[in-house]
Amino acid sequence: MIHFFRKIRQSLLSEGRTTKYFKYAVGEIILVVIGILIALSINNWNSNRITSNKKTEYLLRISDELKGQIKELKLYNDDLTTQIKDNKHVLKILDSQNPDSIPTLKKILGNTSTFWTLRLSFPVTDEFKNQNLQSQIKSDSLKLAFKYLEIYRNSIDAQNDYAITQYTNTIEPFFVKKVNYSEIAIDYFKDGLIQGGPKTDYNTLIKSMELWNITTFKLETLNTGEKIINDLITFFEKIISLIEKEINNP
């Protein structure tokens, strides 16, 4: 093809048709430019298609990741519900100061002295963000949701850190000094412990202001955690819905 165009140019020059030569040369340049633009357009289209497919693949994986986290959150929330119930029951017993309730107190006090952590990880979501694929999202609502996800993740970490500090500095030291832990440990831990040792003075314990406040503060922390978990589950479900809309409306 190049040889063909060269012969035409040589023929025009040899015939002295300079004006037509220049017109032809300009036309040839225009054709080359158009060809380059078409090639670039095809390349950009192909690149965008690959990026779009990659974005969709990641969004599907993120959706699965969030669904898995929702299951974990619901299981954790079940534990919170049990702890909240037992902590409220402990407070009612302490409020009544009824010695007849001591056997029940021994059965449920373990949840006041126990702490469960919750750490969420989002490896697929983090990969998605690190590759700046968020910029390919069309939905402003979904873009905003990913920003809020960071806030929720930080709130969970902050809640965990607070609960750990509360347990380490307040709850555990009290039980170490005032209670024979092997007597009140929850079943999950109790099977591996050895029963015996000094007896707990439960008659004094049910009148303890310190235990009352420890249980009250623990209940406050549990209530806050439950609210965060429920909000997070609702939020994750919203993100999954937005992801489905993004995928179905390319």
Score class of each variant (00 low, 15 high):
Y76L: 06
I29D: 08
A39L: 10
A39N: 03
R61L: 13
P99G: 03
I93K: 04
R61V: 01
W45Y: 15
Y76T: 11
N46V: 00
S41A: 12
K67F: 03
K55T: 15
Q83V: 04
K67R: 08
L40H: 02
Q97P: 02
Q97A: 15
T104R: 14
K23F: 13
V26C: 11
D100T: 06
L60F: 07
L73F: 01
V32W: 05
L31S: 06
K23D: 14
R61W: 08
T51M: 09
L60P: 01
K85V: 01
T82Q: 13
D78H: 11
S96M: 06
K23S: 10
T56Q: 13
T56M: 12
L73E: 03
L94W: 05
N53L: 14
Y58C: 01
L40C: 09
N53F: 07
I42M: 05
Y21D: 01
L60D: 07
I34F: 15
K54C: 02
N44W: 00
D79C: 04
L73S: 04
I29V: 08
V90R: 01
L59K: 05
V26P: 04
P103F: 05
G68D: 11
T82E: 14
K20Q: 12
L31W: 02
E65R: 02
A25D: 10
N77F: 01
L60K: 13
L66M: 12
D95S: 15
K88I: 04
K67G: 11
I84D: 01
D64C: 02
Q83K: 08
R61P: 00
S41G: 15
S41P: 01
T51C: 00
L75F: 11
E72Q: 10
V90D: 04
Y24G: 09
F22Y: 15
K92I: 05
N48H: 12
L73M: 10
S52K: 14
N46W: 03
D95I: 04
N77E: 14
L73I: 03
K67C: 00
Q83S: 12
L31F: 12
R17Y: 10
N43F: 03
K20Y: 15
A39W: 00
N46Q: 09
Y58S: 13
R49M: 11
G27P: 11
I30T: 14
E72Y: 10
P103L: 02
L91C: 05
S96N: 08
K67W: 01
T82S: 11
A25I: 09
D100F: 03
I102H: 04
L94T: 02
H89D: 14
Y21F: 15
P103Q: 02
K92L: 14
K74D: 13
S41D: 06
K20N: 11
D79E: 10
Y76F: 15
E57D: 12
E28W: 06
W45A: 06
L66V: 02
W45I: 00
K54W: 02
N53G: 09
S101K: 10
L37A: 08
K85R: 14
T104C: 00
K74T: 15
N46E: 02
K20R: 09
K74Y: 07
L91P: 05
T104Q: 10
D100N: 11
Y24S: 07
I29R: 04
N87D: 10
R17P: 04
L37K: 00
K54Y: 10
I50G: 02
T56K: 09
I36Q: 01
I70C: 03
G35P: 01
T51E: 13
Q97F: 06
V32N: 06
I70E: 10
